[in-house]
């Protein structure tokens, strides 16, 4: 009796919410939207997020307020959006870390990357790059592999369990070499130590390393995408030496699960328009980011594919966080 009552009450509530949601969806958005960026301000996800938010605000006619909720490798921000009201007024700038790596790595799962979110749009793919200090006597990926087989080497990354760390681990597995991983707190300090030749090798996001590569302070050996990056056509893909090697970082918009489909659609089409803006296209090109601007279904597929791809790498590298 109590059970049925409760169930009925629940259904009633759900229905009421559903109706309210439908009503709200028609004039969505009628107030400011919060875009949660799960990393500190100033990083590459933040930059992509702010550029997109700025343009999407014009499209939607409502301000998109960027809120940085950093911490725990992006998990805190993602968790906050997962728990937020499913009305589309709180959305997340998800990344490969929040929606593929963390769920695989963390022993305690703070959220479910598939069940807790309504995918909106896959915005950009960002290549990573394998680079070395110019003092290291190697010019190609093959030479680096040969050197690593002869003497001990170390590589820097922006932290434990980050896409860059795992790119490095995948590289080690596929090349059959052992290179010591040295984690840093973010890309900046890692780059500093490689520029100062304290550590010879680095896996970094292409955007953050690009100016050092152009100026010759870093020697890029290969990009991690399957094809060469348009912004650096002279830098080969690692896959040219190690066929099948492919990693990249990505940024995508997510809403909490249960967000009305019309709202998701409004957001996705605003994102699509924003990403087609010539000014945004130019910024992303400078940033070496490849624009995708997909729809919700493609993003859902993408998340599944990414989780499938990374699982063996995570297992192989034996990375796990509590």
């Amino acid at each position: 009796m109590i059970l049925t009552l409760t169930r009925r009450a629940l259904m009633g509530t759900a229905l009421a919410f559903g109706l309210a949601g439908a009503a709200a969806a028609q004039d969505f958005p009628d107030r400011a939207i919060t875009l949660v960026i799960p990393f500190a301000a100033g990083g590459s996800t933040d930059v992509v997020g702010r550029i997109v938010a700025d343009r999407m605000s014009q499209e939607l006619g409502q301000q998109i307020v960027v809120q940085n909720v950093g911490g725990a490798g992006g998990s805190l921000g993602a968790q906050q959006v997962a728990k937020a009201d499913a009305d589309g007024y709180t959305i997340l700038m998800g990344t490969v870390a929040t929606h593929a790596l963390n769920p695989l790595i963390l022993k305690q799962k703070p959220y479910d990357p598939v069940a807790d979110f309504a995918p909106v749009s896959l915005l950009v793919l960002v290549p990573n790059v394998l680079a070395v200090n110019p003092a290291l006597p190697v010019n190609t990926v093959q030479e680096l592999i040969d050197l690593a087989k002869k003497e001990p080497l170390a590589y820097a990354s922006s932290g434990n369990g980050t896409p860059l760390h795992l790119s490095g681990e995948l590289f080690k597995t596929m090349a059959g070499v052992d290179i010591t991983h040295i984690p840093y707190k973010g890309s900046g300090p890692a780059l500093t130590d490689v520029l100062g030749n304290q550590v010879p090798v680095i896996f970094d996001n292409l955007p953050s390393a690009s100016s050092h590569i152009s100026s010759g302070k870093l020697k890029a050996l290969g990009v991690t995408t399957a094809e060469r990056a348009p912004s650096f056509p002279d830098v080969p893909a690692i896959a040219e030496t190690l066929p099948g090697y492919e990693t990249y970082s990505w940024n995508a918009l997510f809403a909490p699960a249960g967000t009305p489909p019309e709202v998701v659609e409004t957001l996705a089409s605003a994102a699509k328009t924003a990403m087609a803006d010539p000014a945004v296209v130019a910024r992303m090109a400078e940033f070496s980011a490849e624009i995708v601007a997909s729809g919700p279904e493609e993003l859902a597929e993408h998340v599944k594919a990414e989780m499938t791809k990374w699982e063996p790498v995570v297992v192989e590298a034996n990375v796990s966080l509590d």
Partner: peptide, 23 residues
């Protein structure tokens, strides 16, 4: 290269403005 969080933000501001910070 940022020496502190504020500098990291300045880098972000530069990138948003289309300037690639660096040498």
């Amino acid at each position: 290269i940022p020496a502190n969080p504020v500098m990291a933000l300045m880098i972000g501001a530069m990138i948003i403005q289309g300037i690639v910070p660096g040498p």
